[in-house]
Write a protein that binds this DNA or RNA. Structure first.
Lengths: 343, 343
DNA sequence: TCAGAATCTTTGCGCGCGAAAAATTTTAAT
DNA sequence: ATTAAAATTTTTCGCGCGCAAAGATTCTGA
């Protein structure tokens, strides 16, 4: 390794005795140059370790390898997990992912989208904030940049949507709970940020009616993304004033359930399906921590792998199709019901 | 809003009737141009919404506003939380943060550092992997790029370190547990990835000896970053073969404690300090979920705000000092002991 | 009114690289 | 060996913007 620092491709081309554009070709595809010149470049590479500047690379490229990934709230382990999987698969597919999160803030989502435009991305994977999104901004972004939505859908926006089939989630939990005990009440936030929550409530109501049971929806107060806190506070208030209308509670999502379990524990209310248990609790999402709650949480889990695989595959197809599909596609994956101790 | 799309600063300068360099000045500091021209630019801005390409901006800048933030494992809510705070403060300080995580992988950390070089960052906030890091790569990176290490220190590397005082963490928990009950045993992974774990064990041993108690360190098997799983499996094995050597357990970190609490719950072992409780459990970190465990977890919490404030302030000083300090500085913040139900 | 200061425009270059066109080398077929 | 075609390399230009110097314009205050 020589001590002289190589500052750019020009300098590296000089020391390797090849013209810069040929070196450029090599870095974009080592097989695109003659074996003899490839050897010369790689020999120089060993002596001088140089790496092209990725941002300059993408400056004047027709099609970059950049992919933006946006999740609404990265400190939510659910989104962190799906982001990790997407990043991993994205890299394997030969793209260069960059991760963003607006942390629930409307203006920040808009800024991120603007920032992503500068990236000149080949494509974007976007899980929008939902209710808090600036819909016009998102729409105009998707009109300019090839985008696949995931997790939370905005009708007609983006070239495709890949997500989970909320009806399947609720159908499996309601069916299981009803079959093995009593029909559940539904525990949720009053004004959920995410459209999936609404779909789940509607599915719950429809399924309960279909089975001939009266749906009971419990809406707890609270805004924002501190779901566990909201779930616990709501459950505490409920337990102190009469309790739940059923011995079986189905939570809209696992984070609310985590809060609810904490409230039950505080109140000495045993949760589970064995004897001595006063309440059964199930939920939706397959949150990474759902297996470590007390008791461990029965949940209808996202098919993380399928969703992320499909999202990346769809994005790749979209990019290869030149950024536009003939028709907007929607891929919904059913849940995997994970039976644990809580129900 | 006119329909003609502005593609670059040249075009925008044309429609606003101002020269491009002046427009450039405006975007770098709106106050650096005369109010009248500022108005003209901002009027044009309303009609044509144009935004400079951030990557082109930073291409030929003396000092960019880019800041790289690297955390070892972003799906760990602790790191997600600290990353969020850093991002937020970074933006407030006028920088443009970009977040990266190697997810525990050595090669990925190296790749990220290379990628950050391309960013031409004004500075970098780096929480290295620790044991898994390619120390030479990290060192040579820090030699080239102004870097402040945080969370986990590598001696002599980087211009400064901002983190938590592990001794203070353990000192507070050991003191509290001993004062209000019996001296704790110490629960940890056999080969922790993070150097803080080692410092905590050493602090525990020293403190126990100082108080005249025999230190008892329990090392559970397991590699990687699935701490909850490792903690639960280890605790289950322990509980099935004689149990803990003390009725008080101090966990090296909250994620292990979460696993331990799950194991105790499974085994019907009541945790807490009231009557009927067989075990007291405390821990370190102030993990975002520690307040929702069952029981809620007594923990010595990082001073998240101070650490992130200080990290950003140090980085800003470093940048203003031209990228180098005369001497490497180390800032260690004491823990905040949070008393909850588990101990 | 006018000098001096402040600001703006013009011009030209540089960042680090990709893309298309032009020139060269290599290959294959006669 | 000759030559056209194919493969490869080099030349030239462009991406979108920052930076700097020199000249032109506008603003300030006595």
């Amino acid at each position: 390794m020589s001590s002289t620092k190589i500052r750019n491709m020009e300098e590296f081309a000089a020391v390797s005795g090849i013209s810069r554009p040929t070196v450029s070709k090599y870095f974009n595809d080592p097989d695109s140059v003659r074996p003899s010149t490839r050897n010369r470049i790689e020999e120089a590479l060993e002596r001088y370790d140089y790496r092209p500047n990725i941002f300059a690379m993408n400056q004047n490229r027709k099609l970059t390898k950049n992919v933006g990934i946006v999740v609404p709230y990265l400190t939510d382990p659910f989104f962190a997990e799906i982001a990790r999987k997407l990043e991993e698969r994205c890299t394997l597919a030969g793209f260069r992912p960059t991760l963003y999160s607006p942390y629930g803030q409307r203006e920040m989502e808009v800024e991120i989208l603007d920032s992503i435009r500068s990236l000149k991305p080949a494509g974007v994977l976007l899980a929008p904030l939902g209710r808090a999104s600036d819909h016009k901004a998102v729409e105009s972004f998707c009109a300019d940049v090839p985008t696949v939505l995931f997790d939370s859908d905005i009708e007609g926006v983006g070239e495709a949507f890949v997500g989970s089939d909320n009806f399947s989630f609720v159908s499996q939990t309601v069916e299981y709970l009803t079959r093995t005990g009593s029909p559940p009440c539904f525990f949720e936030m009053r004004t959920p940020a995410n459209p999936n929550a609404n779909k789940r409530r509607l599915a719950y109501i429809e399924l309960m009616e279909r089975h001939g049971h009266e749906p009971r929806v419990i809406k707890v107060e609270g805004e924002g993304w501190a779901f566990e806190q909201i779930g616990r506070d709501g459950a505490l208030r409920l337990l102190e004033s009469g309790g739940f209308p059923s011995d079986t509670v189905l939570c809209s999502n696992d984070r609310l359930a985590i809060g609810l379990l904490a409230a039950c524990y505080e109140k000495g209310m045993r949760v589970g399906r064995g004897e001595g248990c006063a309440l059964r609790v199930a939920s939706h999402d397959g949150h990474p921590f759902s297996q470590f709650t007390c008791p461990s949480l029965t949940t209808a889990s996202h098919d993380y792998d399928s969703v992320s695989d499909r999202a990346i595959a769809t994005l790749r197809d979209l990019i290869e199709a030149g950024g536009r599909f003939d028709a907007r596609t929607e891929m919904l994956y059913p849940a995997n019901l994970i039976l644990r101790a809580s129900a």
